[in-house]
Design a protein around this nucleic acid. Structure first.
Lengths: 352, 352
DNA sequence: TTGAAAGCGCTAACAA
DNA sequence: TTGTTAGCGCTTTCAA
């Protein structure tokens, strides 16, 4: 079945391996390996000859094969939750660019929002990735234990699993929620609606919690904060607002807080488009994340900016790509503060 | 250096391999391989025992190792161009979901818009992917030849390289351009602006070409079509419009055609936001792609819908994931028609 | 249906 | 600095 290999021929055949290159260059196969390994002990002249031969044969080293011995694939996995939210797309984009510039590859997976990531993780394990970035939170401790056992670091991005030993990096969501509440309060709002995302997710919970705490501290009753379910997406928020306030619904509150920008934009479109209200004159609105679209002319959304770059830097540091063998420290939870971005959906405070 | 392996112990150690499972189950290592290979010749009872042992040891098969012999990694590569355009994000999302549901993995790369994909392709080759999907077009024939030589199929999505032997799937961009032109014309437009994307890309060129042809056929002079450069992005289009028409600029045309929706939206925001014009009363606008955001209340953009799902189906078919060894047919170029989506940025034709 | 044995393409001791 | 020699964890003949 297997044909005799035509070594040393110029024919860029189906499978050129280091053996072929070695034959053509008149060196051992190991020398070829060294020629392609930065810092390996090899004479400059030998190296040149090998690289020459390699070029002639259009040889491309097989990373898959090498990872079998080195135990490092140079591949990282990212498991994406809600790709309908531009925030996660931006996160993914920056992550991809970072990793790529470091010469690492990214194996990508999606998981339905709210669905369990275990399946994806199982597949990831088969591919021997060097690290896992999760932006979707539902996963079993059994699974994380599996990863830890084989020394594969996991880091949660913009997520947090209470009581878990999985490390994570996130924005200070509680603080961010407070920032929005303060802005609404100084503008005179007294009745609020919050459009929640995944009610089981820490992100949504924390933002709401900070928001509510700040308002309660102002002496306003909790029942003045109406909670709506927006499923983390534009359309969910739009419909939630319509269902709650349109027609003979409840009175429209003074201020609507979208737990993320996409939902805030969905709410705005319902409020202004379908219900004919003005923002911020009739209703104030605020979001969270600071996605690019929120800054566009139709919205000019006041929001909390998540420090994406810093979060990714931290996450990659937690993945400790430099110290592969190092034991994984359990449950580091890094929190980075967000920044209030004033735009036009909340009246500005008087200057000074 | 290498410790003796503790075979058969329950300890889910650092590296459980099929050998460990075999030892615990009291079978040969080959049997373990068979137990995990669908359709392999193995007794049901043996299989059960092996799976049992595997579970006890939390054994996960190493796909990397197996791909060394099978010559199939089950990984596909996608090379993404402009991730700032939601259209490509949507394309990516659907592609990812499709591949994932087929049990295939996706290795993702980005390339600066307009930059050469050769670097990314080189890395892709090292990882022995089973196929490559490109949404970014600049690549050398040398590179595609390399891929073809080693039997890795490439398919261009929403791209076309004239005279190349790389297969591709795209929307009928010329026809789509004509659809927009017809819509503008029936609404009475006589002076036009087109906001182009990458001037070297076939996509932008074809849409413009179809658009212009239709208009010329109507007897309108070519000089009535002003061409602007929007770099394929929202902000580029916004600034291009401002630069051209704001203040003492040229007179605002009757109709603006954004070569893609993002740019059309950028143009709309410039026109209405900064310049205070009304759409469609003062200027008509149209886009191309039909991204979700274009349907939202502030825009209600008339556009041409790209048949994303069909395009991806075709692309995956061209990648012939079923017939790995089959020689790659050269340069198939599939074109699927787009569909005009009437919304509110061009006055509707009178009914009947 | 099973096991033994020979690789897949590469890296990493070790010796020369 | 080089070549030789074992593997890495798996699949796949080939015999039994």
């Amino acid at each position: 079945m297997t044909m005799p290999k035509e070594r040393g021929t110029r024919r860029a055949g189906t499978h050129v391996t280091s053996v072929d290159v070695a034959a053509l260059a008149g060196v051992s196969q190991a020398a070829v390996s060294r020629a392609f390994t930065p810092g390996a002990p090899i004479a400059a002249e030998t190296r040149r000859r090998i690289l020459d031969a390699a070029r002639k044969l259009s040889y491309v080293p097989n990373s898959i094969a090498s990872s079998l011995t080195t135990r490092r694939t140079n591949m990282f996995a990212v498991i994406l939750g809600n790709m309908n939210n531009p925030f996660y797309v931006k996160l993914f984009k920056i992550l991809l660019e970072r990793l790529q510039s470091q010469g690492r590859q990214l194996l990508t997976f999606t998981v339905e929002p709210g669905a369990n990531s275990d399946d994806a993780l199982m597949r990831v394990l088969r591919y021997q990735v060097d690290g896992i970035i999760l932006t979707s939170a539902q996963l079993s401790t059994r699974m994380t234990a599996l990863c830890h056992d084989r020394g594969i670091p996991i880091v949660l991005l913009n997520r947090y699993i209470p009581g878990s030993d999985v490390s994570g990096v996130r924005c200070d969501n509680i603080g961010g929620g407070r920032l929005i509440a303060k802005a609404f309060l100084q503008a005179g709002a007294r009745h609020f609606a919050v459009i929640k995302g995944d009610p089981r997710g820490s992100t949504s919970q924390d933002r709401l919690r900070g928001f509510a705490e700040q308002i309660l501290e102002e002496g306003i009753a909790r029942r003045n904060i109406l909670e709506l379910e927006g499923q983390s997406i534009y359309e969910g928020a739009r419909l939630a607002v319509l269902r709650a306030f349109q027609g003979k619904g409840q009175p429209v509150p003074d201020a609507v807080f979208g737990i993320n920008d996409t939902m805030a934009m969905g709410a705005m479109d319902a409020l202004r488009g379908e219900m004919g209200l003005r923002v911020p004159e009739d209703v104030m609105v605020a979001g969270f994340d600071d996605i690019d679209e929120g800054a566009h002319w139709p919205y000019r959304l006041t929001t909390v900016r998540q420090p994406i770059e810093a979060m990714i830097d931290e996450a990659l540091a937690l993945l400790q790509p430099d110290a592969p063998g190092r034991p994984i420290e359990p449950g580091i939870d890094r929190t980075i503060p967000g920044e209030l971005i004033w735009r036009d959906t909340i009246p500005r405070p008087k200057h000074g």
